[in-house]
Design a protein around this nucleic acid. Structure first.
Length: 111
DNA sequence: AAACTGACTAATA
DNA sequence: CTATTAGCCAGTT
């Protein structure tokens, strides 16, 4: 019997990160550290970034709503991915300061 | 297997 | 306010 199928873990830490990111409501933003803490122990701010980077084109995850704790968008890599992120957030109603900073007091997700 | 890198944060100076 | 250092852990080379 039996058979214990799956010889391996499934619990991808990424799934936990995505689950939290999906919870971010429209028009709100959260920091990597915040998401990491909500995802539970074992998840660090960097892991959130890796998970999102590995995400790729999953539209099921509002990765654009995740920003760094400075209230700004972190520089990605090549291309203007970060610029696109700002555009998307503006579309959602998020306002940016002249410096490109988002006011957590107004748009920060309080979960 | 060791070394390097990376969408981060917090603490210190 | 900026700059620097350390901690963090997974994925890649």
């Amino acid at each position: 019997m039996s058979a214990k199928i799956q010889p391996k873990q499934q619990p991808n830490y990424r799934e936990r990160v995505y689950a939290v990111v999906r919870k971010i409501p429209y028009g709100k933003v959260a920091t990597y550290g915040q998401v990491a803490r909500m995802a539970g122990a074992g998840i660090t701010a960097r892991m959130v970034g890796y998970a999102l980077a590995a995400l790729s084109d999953e539209k099921d995850v509002p990765w654009q709503r995740v920003i760094n704790h400075q209230g700004k968008i972190s520089p990605h890599g090549y291309g203007f991915g970060s610029a696109m992120q700002e555009t998307i957030l503006r579309e959602e109603g998020v306002q940016f300061s002249p410096e490109g900073v988002i006011d957590f007091n107004q748009f920060g997700w309080q979960g």
